[in-house]
Amino acid sequence: MNATFETRMDTLPQAARGSQQGAPDTSDPMIEIDHLDFYYGANHALRDISLQIPGHQVTAFIGPSGCGKSTLLRCFNRMNDLIEGTRIGNGQIRIHGIDISDPAVDTIALRRQVGMVFQKSNPFPKSIYENIAYGLQIQGVRDRRRLDEVVEKSLRGAALWDEVKDRLHTSALGLSGGQQQRVCIARAIAVEPSIILMDEPCSALDPIATAKVEELIHELKKNYTIVIVTHNMQQAGRCSDMTAFFYLGQLIEMGKTEKIFTNPVQKQTEDYISGRFG
């Protein structure tokens, strides 16, 4: 691996995003996982996972609690590094073709490319503006005009601009749950990642707010590759192009969402999606 992560990360997604003019190139896998084994201390949390996540599509991870889907998601931006005793035992995760557990990979550069939206909407107790500008500010951007631009662009991208443009400088905690979650999405896209990971983004939202977030996910896939962990079968069905079903740390089945939902190959998948599990 001669090219450093920084340089390749900076050039590649730009090229990928250039495809906005043409049809998005979906054949190119954005994230590739090869025989991944992952441990929480002695607990073998992920077993021999191999899959490929296509670019500019929504890939849903489903499975019962504790099946490892969130763990896998958090491998993609190395958020698991924050948890003591976690380690990759075997295998590789490649994003844009680069092994992200390579010591040459800086987690900070990685996380700028691989954004994340969490289960519980976690806007900082700052103004809406500061929330969105945060990612750029920690990169040292001070230019007010640039920040203004990015804040507007990101909020528009998150379909939130019209709702909040008159109160950008009020606390983000004053927003409704759904709006807060969309602030978090706007915050993530403000740093221009190429991949957005979503860990049960709608689990705390009511159906109307959920619908809006799903709508947004559908819009965002034009420009970003999205991986979403969800417990909501309908959500996986509605918004995803690909679905992967996990059980007990193993990938049971992955395929096009229509296929998984109408005629899965594995019995376990069928039982799970039809609610007959266990």
Binding site: M233, Q234, G237, R238, T257, E258, F261, T262
Partner: peptide, 9 residues
């Protein structure tokens, strides 16, 4: 129809 029913409930 079946795809829609399966994926959108």
């Amino acid at each position: 129809v079946i795809t829609y029913m399966a994926t959108h409930g």
